[in-house]
Amino acid sequence: MDYHYNFGLVWRHFDKLSYGMLLSLELALLCFGVGIIIGLLLALLHVSGGRLTRTLVAAYVETIRNVPLILLVYLVFYGLPTIINVHYNAVASFVLTLSLYAGAYLVETFRAGLAAVSRGVIEAGMAIGLTPLQRLVYVRLPTMFRIILPSLSNTFISLFKDTSIASVIAVPELTYGANWIGTNTFRTIEVYTIITPMYLATGYAIVLLLRQLERTFAVRRT
């Protein structure tokens, strides 16, 4: 094939890619943070609540987990504003969607983590006279976070990759930037050849960082 590669046009618009990469990371981080709050609250509700709360939490988790993310993105961005009186831009809409999505996955992680905290540690907390709230804050939650750390890292990496779906509602993250350059310069294969290692390198850097964190904090399961 005599296709002439021309990376020059892509480099000329590299600001679109660097901006997109930063936005992707910001989106992933923000949604991860909000997802952790949602997941933690619902996991605690699920553990301590009655049958009705459990059913509601399970309904939320199962609904989100069994519907494609792209459909959820469309539903929140194009669908919701037609039935309730809300106005948001694409970025806010995507942050809302991905946070709810992350929350649904994290509920399960936190639930498993809370269940994995050994009885002995909790009983030790009782023995030194901690109240239930103190036991939760000083014993169960810190132990749980150390147990689920590897699982949290995986969720974060997945979220980082899922931010690419924001491109379908024109959020100018990395994939959108690549599509923009592809459409405007016709240098499609070049631009994808560049963003693939960008995603890989960033993902790998995050993995290395998180592994370091795990080495420091994770509980060795015996």
């Binding site: 690419s164 491109s167 994939t175 690549a178 294969i189 995603y199």
Partner: peptide, 14 residues
């Protein structure tokens, strides 16, 4: 390590 969306675009457009 790459988003599935990027892979789909790569195969189709690239």
């Amino acid at each position: 390590g790459i988003p599935i969306l990027v892979l789909i675009f790569f195969v189709f457009y690239g």
